[in-house]
C-alpha cells in the first residue's frame, strides 16, 4: 500500500469512527428524549459504574489534593501568603483536577468494563440475539449506561472535590501549620460556586465520552477473545485522549473569557 493510499484509508477509518460514535450518541439521545429508559437497569449500572468507582476516585483525588497543597503550601509560607493555599487547592480541584482526574480513572475502570462486557456479548452472539428478538441493543445496553454515567460522573466529581480539599487541608495543617479555619476561609473567598458548576459541566461531558466510546468499541468488536482485548484497550486509550482534548476545549470555552478569550 502506498503512503497516499494509507493516509486515505486512515482518514476514512477516522471519519467512519467519528460518524459511528455520533450515530450511537444520537440514537441514545433519541431514546432518552422519548423517556424509553430501563430504570432498573439504569440503577444497576449507576451502582456498577459509579458507586463501585468511589474508592479509586477517593485515592486519586486525596493524593492529588495533598500534593497540590504540599507544593503550594511550601511556596506560599515562604512568601508569607499561606492564607491563599486553600484557594489554590480548591481552584485547581473544582475547575480542572476534580473533573479530569475522576474521568480518567473512571475511564480506566468503567470504560474498560463497558467495552469488555459489550465486546464479549458480541462474540457470544448476545447482541445479535437482541436484534433477533426485535430489541434495540442501544436502548437495552447503551442508554442505561449513558444515563447512569451522566448522573454518577458529576456525583463522583463532587466527591473528588471534597476529598481533595480535605486532604489538602490536612496536609497544609500538618506540614505548613496552616490552620483548618484559614484554609477553609481561603477556599470560600477565592472559589465561587460557578467554578464548581463549570467543573460539573465538564464531568457531564466526560461521562458521555467514557460511555459512548466504551460502548462503541465494545459493539464493533470482531475476532473473539483477542478482539475483546483490543476493544477494551482502545476504549480506555481513546476515552482518555478525548478527555484531555475536551478538557482543554471546555476550559477555554468556560473559563477563557476571564483572560479575554472565549
Amino acid at each position: 500500500m502506498n503512503p497516499l493510499e494509507s493516509v486515505g484509508r486512515e482518514s476514512t477509518d477516522l471519519l467512519e469512527y467519528v460518524g459511528g460514535v455520533a450515530i450511537l450518541g444520537s440514537e441514545s439521545a433519541s431514546f432518552i428524549a422519548r423517556l424509553r429508559i430501563r430504570v432498573a437497569e439504569t440503577f444497576n449500572q449507576a451502582y456498577l459504574l459509579g458507586v463501585q468507582s468511589w474508592s479509586i476516585v477517593l485515592l486519586t483525588s486525596l493524593f492529588t489534593g495533598m500534593v497540590i497543597s504540599l507544593e503550594s503550601a511550601v511556596q506560599a509560607v515562604q512568601y508569607g501568603v499561606g492564607n491563599l493555599v486553600g484557594g489554590a487547592v480548591a481552584f485547581g480541584s473544582f475547575r480542572e483536577l476534580g473533573p479530569m482526574l475522576s474521568a480518567v480513572v473512571v475511564a480506566g475502570r468503567a470504560g474498560a468494563a463497558i467495552a469488555a462486557e459489550l465486546g464479549s456479548m458480541v462474540v457470544t452472539e448476545q447482541i445479535e440475539a437482541l436484534d433477533a428478538l426485535g430489541l434495540s441493543p442501544v436502548r437495552m445496553l447503551v442508554v442505561p449506561r449513558l444515563v447512569a454515567m451522566l448522573i454518577m460522573m458529576p456525583v463522583l466529581t463532587i466527591f473528588a472535590d471534597i476529598v481533595s480539599i480535605l486532604g489538602g487541608a490536612w496536609l497544609a495543617n500538618s506540614v505548613a501549620h496552616i490552620s483548618y479555619d484559614t484554609f477553609l476561609l481561603s477556599v470560600r473567598q477565592q472559589v465561587h460556586i460557578g467554578d464548581m458548576l463549570k467543573g460539573l459541566v465538564k464531568s457531564f461531558v466526560f461521562g458521555a465520552i467514557i460511555v459512548l466510546i466504551g460502548c462503541y468499541q465494545g459493539l464493533r468488536t470482531r475476532g473473539g477473545a483477542a478482539g475483546v482485548g483490543v476493544a477494551t484497550t482502545g476504549a480506555v486509550v481513546i476515552a482518555i485522549i478525548l478527555i484531555f482534548i475536551t478538557n482543554f476545549l471546555l476550559s477555554y470555552i468556560l473559563f477563557g473569557q476571564q483572560f479575554g478569550g472565549g
Binding site: 456479548m121 457470544t124 452472539e125 448476545q126 445479535e128 440475539a129 433477533a132 428478538l133
Partner: peptide, 14 residues
C-alpha cells in the same frame, strides 16, 4: 423479527 423465533448455535443467552 418479533414473529420469528431464533435459537442460536450456542444459545446466546444473556
Amino acid at each position: 423479527r418479533r414473529s420469528i423465533g431464533f435459537s442460536f448455535q450456542f444459545a446466546a443467552l444473556f
